[in-house]
Write a protein that binds this DNA or RNA. Structure first.
Length: 433
RNA sequence: UCCGAGCUGGGGUAGUGGCAUCCUAUCACCCUGUGGCGGUGAUGACACGGGUUCAAUUCCCGUGCUCGGACCCA
């Protein structure tokens, strides 16, 4: 027996059935919004990451030399690949480019709850529009796919913020503030106590009085008082950022998703590359302690990977943390396989059973029949184990009367049907059992 | 990388310095006509390495893995 690699997981049919349903729900929502599916290599040139020196992600690459000594790596994220795809067909792609892609990614990092070394995400992005309505469409989709999964507004908080608002307010205190460090501090503020938070802000260049004032300001700001915050900051940047965020929130309203979104300037996202709107989904109860997923606008990133300057906004729900929220809320799908019919053979009825099985399968039902030569009782036990809704008993006694016996596995009730009348010509799996 | 807890058949467990228990699951048979809910049987475990000991699954050390947390989070 070989062990699995640490941080890598197997998914057995029952677990996979639930995952499949979640992924399908997410992807179906994407398709309704007109996002188109893409696929891309899971192995890329390692230089796509190592050329950008000083990035922490380089430490986490599954990188190696291939047989021709190319320096390659399993992909830790989609962005550089997406940037390449956009750059390669920059001219011919109609804008905006709206893509989604569900894929595994790999990072050699410490395994803990909701974090693995191989993990699956659906990346959802719009490239080529800097209009607030693009941000809003992405946010609306993010909120909608959560409700599609069975969550309601009480289950999650969709917190929306704006990097440039934080940055311009910080700079209004002192132009020499390390905005990047200060924003990281904001991102951590919820996990640490106030004193620590203010210490971090002080490290970034604020005085303790300024740190306290900044803390109060961004905590107290509501949608209606955003303009006051811009006045306080007093810069064109601040006014532009507030105007942008307001426009995004208004557009979110028009997309009908505002009930699930709230302004929360304390939300910042830990990543440096965000340039505008950022948002993050949290468990309302706090039981799932980490962010479920997040996203935002990253207008400079495509260019930094060698593409043309291309505005971009997107997010990536991951199937490590999302199930934690769904389970907490009690809406994670059943982990069970489903079967419409089991065709049970009794005596020498293999030919008739095979034909009936084929007819049912032609009607797109999920159908199994005996492939092990088992006894009646053993076949019924197996049918139970695969959650067969209906067992069709094809026995010599039944066939002698030109009929089958249908057993409803839920109720145990049985009835006979004429061989000529089953299966019916039309009707879905739910209608004719 | 660090901290904490843990590791006994596939899953869940009992237990012990000397015979490893039970439940469940799986498979077969009873059984060519009734599963989830009968009977019989079979398969199958002390994470790995080293140490102490006459003897280690048990005690000690190390490693691995699992779970939780810290750090990190292009």
């Amino acid at each position: 027996m070989y062990d699995r690699l640490k941080g890598f997981r197997d998914f057995y049919p029952e677990e996979m059935a639930a995952r499949r349903e979640v992924i399908d729900t997410v992807e179906t929502a994407c398709r309704r919004y007109g996002f188109r599916e893409t696929a891309s290599p899971h192995l890329e040139r390692a230089e796509m990451w190592t050329d950008k020196a000083g990035e922490g992600i380089v430490e986490e690459l599954y990188a190696f030399g291939d047989r021709s000594d190319r320096h390659v790596t399993l992909t830790p994220e989609l962005t550089p690949t997406a940037a390449r795809m956009v750059a390669a067909k920059q001219q011919e792609l109609s804008k905006p480019i709206k893509w989604f892609s569900t894929r595994p990614f790999w990072r050699y990092e410490q395994v803990q709850q909701g974090r693995f070394r191989e993990f699956y995400q659906t990346n959802i992005d719009i490239f080529g529009s800097s209009d607030p309505r693009a941000d809003a469409e992405v946010i609306a989709l993010g909120a909608e796919l959560l409700t599609d999964l069975g969550l309601d507004g009480d289950d999650f908080e969709f917190r929306v913020s704006h990097r440039d608002i934080l940055g311009s307010v910080l700079r209004s205190f002192d132009v020499d503030i390390d905005v990047r460090d200060a924003i990281r501090a904001v991102d951590k503020s919820e996990k640490i106590d106030t004193a620590e938070y203010h210490d971090l802000l002080a490290d970034a260049g604020l005085s303790y009085d300024q740190a306290a004032e900044f803390d109060d300001l961004i905590t107290a700001t509501t949608r209606d008082s955003l303009d006051d915050l811009a006045e306080f900051a007093g810069s064109d940047d601040a006014h532009a950022a507030v105007e942008n965020l307001t426009a995004v929130l208004d557009a979110v309203d028009r997309f009908g998703a505002s009930d699930h979104c709230e302004l929360s300037l304390e939300t910042a996202r830990g990543f440096d590359y965000y340039t505008g709107v950022v948002f993050e989904c949290f468990d309302s109860t706090g039981e799932v302690s980490r962010s479920v997923f997040g996203g935002g606008r990253y207008d400079d990133l495509i260019e930094s990977f060698g593409g043309e300057p291309t505005p971009a906004v997107g997010f990536a729900p991951g199937y490590a943390t999302l199930p934690l929220l769904l389970q907490r809320a009690g809406v994670y799908p059943d982990e069970a396989v489903a079967t419409d019919y089991y065709v049970l053979q009794v005596g020498d009825t293999e030919r008739e059973a095979a034909e009936l099985t084929r007819e049912l399968r032609e009607r797109e039902y999920v159908v199994e029949t005996d492939v092990s030569g088992r006894s009646f009782g053993a076949q019924l036990g197996y049918a139970d184990s695969i959650n067969a809704e209906t067992v069709v008993i094809v026995g010599e006694q039944d066939l002698a009367d030109d009929q089958y016996t249908l057993r409803d596995m839920e109720t145990g009730e049985q009835r006979t049907v004429s061989v000529d009348e089953f299966p019916p010509e039309s009707g879905g799996p739910a209608d004719d059992a």
